[in-house]
């Protein structure tokens, strides 16, 4: 039963997870302070950091899952993070697609508007 040997997360791992989570929170807060990150995205990141902190403090969930599936707990941890990241990237490509769509419509409207302004100016010049 090699998997049951690691009943608890090693202390160093817990400290590492906690440290990285706190660092992530600080980075997100700083990005928000500078106005580089919209609140709706910042919330996702803060929730991520919060969940990591909880894993650091209460590792039992991860250990229980690891024992259930006969995985190493690190494998469980990375699997969770991997799928979470996948979901995050998916939501980004959706957001980018929507931005591209808006960008196209705005570009077209701007060009049409510039053209009608140009037309009006020409009419004014030839009229006077």
């Amino acid at each position: 039963m090699p998997f049951l040997e690691q009943v608890n997360l090693q202390f160093a791992h817990r400290v590492g997870i906690l440290g990285l989570s706190v660092l992530l929170m600080l980075v997100v807060l700083e990005l928000m302070r500078r106005g580089w990150l919209k609140e709706k995205y910042a919330l996702v990141w803060l929730a991520t950091a919060g969940a990591s902190v909880l894993v650091g403090i209460f590792p039992h969930v991860i250990v229980a899952a690891a024992n259930t599936f006969h995985f190493q707990y690190l494998t469980v941890l990375f699997t969770v993070y991997f799928f979470f990241t996948l979901g995050l990237i998916m939501s980004f490509t959706v957001a980018i697609s929507r931005l591209a769509e808006r960008n196209r419509e705005l570009t077209q409207e701007l060009a049409l508007l510039a053209h009608s302004v140009d037309k009006l100016e020409r009419r004014l010049e030839s009229g006077s």
Partner: peptide
């Protein structure tokens, strides 16, 4: 010719559609 200038490159679809919008309006 009348020229409608797109400020950034949209590709053939976005360009032709600009013409369609102009024609429609």
């Amino acid at each position: 010719a009348e020229v409608i200038r797109l400020p950034v490159n949209l590709g053939i679809g976005g360009a032709v559609q600009t013409g369609f919008k102009y024609a429609w309006r």
